[in-house]
Design a protein around this nucleic acid. Structure first.
Length: 892
RNA sequence: GGUCUUAUAGCUCAGCUGGUUUAGAGCACCUGCCCUACAAGCAGGGGGUCCUAGGUUCGAAUCCUAGUGGGACCA
């Protein structure tokens, strides 16, 4: 066979094996008699590029899918992309702007043509990138939230919910994004702490008759040459143009005198009533609240309650509207600066204070949200929240880590109706059709709409041209919430073969940041439309941060390019780097050094393989040491497989990886291979060789879900394989019974070998010089003597019944004392000092144990096996101390 | 402000229903080694008042309370 390079080069093999897997259709899944294992991908934005979050997320999914496949399940990982309404539309608008085209100059159809072109050009790049990572998705199933099947599903669900009375249309206070020019849901608003100013404004009393003063304790009256006035504290002085009332708390003695009066809005000079409501916080500012029903959610509620006028002073883009009567056309933030000056000049600004408050920003465009009254479509959430809560709280649908159950419950219990309309073109257009004489109908298509419209209006002469479809489209999440159903066409074809087979899906892997946007809503739609959970388990990954704990962002430039990492460390190395740092739910502090560790591990596997494949095989007797090693490794292997299975059951994936890592590196490479390795240029016996290849193959299988490429490469090189024999469709070993005693014996053996090597290192004695070894202690059974002889270069092993001739280096392993006679090489004083230190430690330990045992309450209350353990500790420690003391005596 | 969560080695974390020696791992660090699988390696080594203060208990890193410091979500 050809000579293998001493360093593993991932680039040589990765694309080759990915293509091989594709060519053989190993990623494909069709319903059959096997147990299904299904994951639907969290669809990334169609025009997005791969970032570290995707890497983490998809590595985990691929590990789970590959493992399930190797457990004999019918594994199906469905990929796809999201049309990402706002984000994509914003990108298209930007691109058009660069070409000098304004969106408003285009018709809806023209704009959509540009958007589709953009999508065709940039769409799906991210899926190609996932292939580089090794993702074993069934690419034939790739879905898009705006393709035909998914679009039909969305419209059908909208109509259904409308018919059920769960969708309604109305004027409500919504979060308005003045840049994207659309309403947003509550979840799309991000609150940020800001340093701002609190402005104290003077509202003079109108037609003041000087009445109302009570002289009661706490009363505060402001007056100056122009008369009496109230002081209102606000962070948004520019909204005074929309003031239609002032509100005080009826229990507030400071402002009692204002009750029933009217006051004058500064600069605007509008006279507004003073109303009273306990909603007002007496302690905030002066206890006087300006009420602007059009521009604040709480003020809106007051407006409804007291039937106040609403004056909308903003245009959709955040500039001041005609209705304001002043500053018309200027930007809201410019006006805030200007009005401060104008108020001050007019003597209407009492004072300003520094103030920290939380301001809502648009998740997508990062501009300050404007609360705005507008006509929107809403989905009632009460019923949906109810059906989605219980299964999670009862752990029928499990969250990993479970702490997110709390977050989930909190949201569902305080949920508000979902604003699902967006004033955008890129998305699913709302299937509502307005009639010429007013009113509307909701229908899946124009024909049905026309029928309904005729019936509704009683006008049989209506034509489709008479109907006007709602211009708005739906929130992106209104399509992704159906993803686990719509990918299997369960909305359009309820009960079809695929949905019956694949639904509920098995695991969902996603970030906790979209628990409300997506996870919760999928659970709602799952129960509403399938009567069952959309997935059995949700694995929440952490957020990927840099090693200093900062979020990865473009502006910080601290986000590595995943493809660049793959180039440098190989996909397997990067996958391992991600997983080493990623316990479920914890944020992961990503450090390139972890990819390096991954790459180093690849190299270790590669070199172990080079060793094994370099052996010359011969029919000959199996050495005893090899026979013992082969027997032991089987036990160790099974023990670790059990451990790995347990980790996976608990979704402790990084721990599972660490277990395989140590199994391969420490147990297999450092111990097993050294035990069976023939002397330089000597052949190996066939029996050992074959056992070793078998172990190697098993290890590769265990490693495959984590590191698909190198494991396939080596699996194919272990022996000649059939064209269709791939590691990715092989079966993982089932865990077998293992002998704990055998493993413990080897642990002692390893301890002895390490001890002897240590003696050599300390004394500077060459490994070539053979030692004799004496042991003392009943725990030594001599069964691994051949291994000790081989790995520690020991010529003879004898029980130390007689006094050992000459000076010896001694050490203890468990309760066994090992002595290596070294003649003049031993410095007796040094040895004695070492032993005395050991005795000191043991005596301290013994004292602790004795204290426990002499405590009557401990002996009486503790479980008998615990007491027994303590007694064993005591006797072990005592015997060790005795041995050491004896030894010191001998050396003196 | 509300809810939740967390604090263990230089870093990232295990440590499960309290008792597996006087707390572990990986990485990093230090000291030796190019000994033909592997320097992307090998052999050794150091390193912790388990955040603080109380409490429960025969026994606390583990359970409870308070405080302090992180983090997340919601308003």
């Amino acid at each position: 066979m050809e000579e293998l390079a001493s360093k593993y080069n991932p680039a040589d093999v990765e694309s080759k094996w990915y293509q091989y897997w594709l060519d053989n259709g190993f990623f494909k899944s069709k319903p059959d008699g096997r147990e299904p294992y299904t994951i639907v991908i969290p669809p990334p934005n169609v025009t997005g590029v791969l970032h570290m979050g995707h890497m983490l997320n998809n590595t985990i999914q691929d590990i789970l899918v590959r493992r399930a496949r190797m457990m004999g399940k019918n594994a199906c990982w469905v990929p796809g992309t999201d049309h990402a309404s706002i984000a994509t539309e914003a990108k298209v608008v930007n691109k058009l702007a660069q070409e000098g085209i304004k969106k408003t100059d285009l018709t809806r159809e023209q704009f959509l043509e540009h958007a589709w072109e953009w999508t065709r050009k940039h769409g799906g790049i991210i899926l190609e990138q996932l292939k580089k990572l090794g993702a074993s998705c069934d690419w034939d199933r790739t879905g898009f939230t705006m393709d035909e099947t998914r679009s039909k599903s969305v419209i059908k669900v909208f109509c259904d919910l409308y018919e059920k009375g769960l969708i309604y249309r109305g004027v409500r206070m919504v979060n308005w994004d003045p840049k994207a020019l659309t309403a947003l849901s509550d979840e799309e608003v991000i609150y940020k702490e800001e340093h701002s100013k609190l402005f104290y404004l003077k509202y003079y009393v109108a037609d003041d008759d000087m009445s109302g003063e009570t002289g009661a304790e706490g009363e505060i009256i402001h007056r100056d040459a122009k008369g009496r006035y109230a002081v209102v504290a606000t962070t948004r002085p520019e909204t005074i143009m929309g003031d239609t009332a002032m509100c005080i708390n009826p229990k507030d003695p400071k402002n009692r005198w204002l009750a029933g009066k009217k006051v004058i809005v500064p600069l605007v000079n509008r006279v507004i009533p003073v109303i009273e409501d306990e909603y007002v916080d007496i302690e905030f500012g002066t206890g006087c609240l300006k009420v602007t029903p059009a521009h604040d959610v709480n003020d809106y509620m007051l407006g409804e309650k007291y039937n106040l006028q609403t004056i909308d002073i903003f245009n959709d883009n955040g500039s001041i509207s005609e209705a304001a009567g002043m500053y018309v056309g200027q930007d809201r933030f410019d006006v805030r600066k200007q009005i401060e000056k104008d108020l001050d000049a007019a003597g209407l600004l009492e004072k300003t204070e520094d103030y920290n408050n939380k301001v809502g920003y648009s998740e997508r465009t990062n501009v300050v949200i404007e609360p705005k009254l507008s006509m929107q479509w809403f989905l009632k959430m009460e019923h949906l929240a109810k059906i989605a809560l219980e299964p999670v709280m009862k752990d029928e649908l499990k969250f990993y880590p479970p702490k997110y159950k709390n977050t989930y419950r909190n949201w569902l219990e305080n949920i508000k109706d979902w604003c699902i309309s967006r004033q955008l073109w890129w998305g699913h257009r709302i299937p509502a059709y307005f009639l010429p004489q007013g009113g509307y109908v909701v229908a899946e298509n124009e024909e049905k709409a026309l029928e309904l419209a005729k019936a509704k209006s009683g006008n049989n002469n209506l034509t489709i041209a008479d109907l006007r479809q709602d211009e708005d489209c739906l929130d992106t999440w209104f399509s992704s919430w159906l993803w686990p159903i719509s990918l299997f066409d369960g909305i359009n074809n309820p009960g079809n073969e695929e949905i019956k087979y694949y639904y509920p899906t098995s695991d969902l892997v996603t970030g906790p940041d979209i628990i409300f946007f997506w996870v919760a809503r999928m659970i709602m739609s799952g129960y509403e439309y399938q009567g069952d959970m959309p997935f059995k388990n949700v694995y929440f990954t952490g957020i990927v941060r840099d090693k200093l704990g900062r979020k990865m962002s473009k502006s910080l430039g601290n986000s590595p390019d995943p493809l660049d990492l793959i180039d440098r460390f190989g996909a397997d190395g990067v996958r391992m780097g991600m997983m080493l740092s990623a316990p479920a739910g914890n944020d992961i502090l990503f450090d390139e050094a972890l990819c390096e560790q991954g790459r180093n591990f690849n190299n270790k596997i590669w070199n172990a393989f080079r060793l094994v494949k370099g052996w010359e095989v011969k029919e000959m007797e199996q050495p005893e040491s090899a026979q013992k090693a082969v027997k032991w490794f089987k036990q160790q292997l099974n023990k670790t497989i059990a451990e790995i299975n347990d980790c996976f059951d608990k979704y402790r994936i990084s721990e599972a990886l660490m277990a395989v890592y140590k199994l391969f590196w420490d147990e297999f490479s450092s111990w097993y291979l050294e035990m069976v390795k023939p002397a330089y240029q000597q052949p190996i016996d066939k029996e050992t060789y074959e056992a070793t290849l078998n172990y190697f193959e098993t290890l590769l299988k265990l490693l495959h879900p984590f590191m698909p490429f190198i494991t396939e490469e080596l699996y194919q090189n272990i022996k000649e394989r059939d064209a269709k024999d791939s590691i990715m469709v092989s079966l993982l070993p089932k865990v077998e019974e293992y002998c704990e005693k055998n493993i413990n014996r080897m642990e002692i053996t390893k301890g002895i070998i390490a001890g002897i090597r240590n003696v050599r290192a300390n004394k500077g004695i060459s490994p070539r010089e053979a030692f004799e070894m004496y042991y003392k202690g009943s725990d030594f059974d001599g069964k691994n003597n051949s291994i000790i002889e081989k790995l520690a270069n020991v010529s003879k092993i004898t029980e130390a019944t007689d006094e050992i001739k000459g000076a010896a280096a001694t050490f203890m392993v468990s309760t066994i004392e090992i002595s290596i006679p070294l003649g003049n090489n031993v410095n007796a004083e040094e040895e004695i000092k070492k032993m005395e230190e050991e005795i000191k430690y043991l005596e301290g330990f013994l004292a602790g144990v004795e204290k426990k045992l002499s405590n009557e309450k401990f002996v009486a209350n503790a479980k008998p096996e615990i007491v027994e353990k303590e007694r064993k500790k005591k006797s072990d420690a005592e015997s060790k101390i005795a041995t050491l003391k004896e030894n010191i005596a001998k050396m003196k």
